[in-house]
């Protein structure tokens, strides 16, 4: 049932919105992981980020693509919680800091064991439009325990203009989605964060819409 809701939600609303009204300049499509378990690490500036990344996948595999999202925000009221759990099928993540490190990722582990592709935003929050915030260590802790799983970095640019934080008016703009090579293994969190930041910086140079912000 959930699978049908999710497919309809993407076929009727999200895909037309993202592909026609918004528009994507896609680079490196062949590097997009098609089979799970896998992790996608993207920069985060807008609620549209996860929707755009999920739209890259065909409807037949869309139920396997699951964004990891903050429980304190997406489960905060009943309507939003229903959409988050049924239409998007998010993996809720507790970012309050009151949960044990082992339990923190139990949802993620479960999804990966199930062969899903997780979408994670290592910055942890949307931040200000078109700026990379400081990358948090969370993804490193998850990656350390699942060294068999590839982490594919994806840089997104331009969505902070289409729908920035705190704005309700949606304005159409093409956005860049640049898919990079999987991240190398890293022994400690500093190296890991350095790798991912470097990868994002390199991918941003391929954006077409990056000159548009001055």
């Amino acid at each position: 049932m959930n699978r049908i809701i999710k497919i309809l939600f993407f076929a009727l609303i999200i895909k037309p919105l993202v592909l026609i009204v918004l528009g994507i300049n896609l680079r490196g499509r062949e590097k997009l992981p098609v089979k799970g378990p896998a992790i996608i690490a993207a920069n985060h500036n807008s609620h549209l980020d996860a929707l755009v990344l999920m739209s890259l996948y065909p409807l037949t595999s869309i139920h396997k693509i699951r964004p990891v999202a903050a429980a304190d925000y997406f489960l905060s009221n009943r309507l939003l919680a229903w959409v988050s759990l049924h239409c998007l099928d998010i993996v809720p993540f507790n970012r309050s800091g009151h949960v044990d490190k082992d339990k923190l990722f139990s949802g993620c582990h479960q999804a990966l064991d199930n062969g899903d592709i997780l979408i994670l935003f290592p910055e942890g929050s949307r931040g200000s439009p078109e700026k990379i915030s400081k990358i948090k260590k969370g993804l490193f802790y998850l990656a350390r325990e699942r060294s068999d799983i590839k982490i594919t970095p994806i840089a997104i640019y331009g969505l902070g203009r289409a729908l920035p934080r705190g704005e309700a008016l949606f304005v159409p703009f093409n956005c860049d989605v640049i898919i990079g090579d999987p991240l190398p293994d890293a022994g400690d969190s500093t190296v890991f964060i350095k790798n991912i930041s470097q990868s994002f910086a390199e991918l941003f140079t391929q954006c077409l819409t990056r000159h548009s912000d001055k």
């Binding site: 528009g23 439009p129 331009g158 902070g160 203009r161 920035p164 704005e167 008016l169 304005v171 703009f173 093409n174 956005c175 077409l208 819409t209 000159h211 548009s212 912000d213 001055k214």
Partner: peptide, 13 residues
């Protein structure tokens, strides 16, 4: 496409 590549200000949305 044009407005996505040329310089625009966030305030011009």
């Amino acid at each position: 496409e044009f407005l996505s590549i040329v310089p625009t200000r966030l305030t011009d949305r």
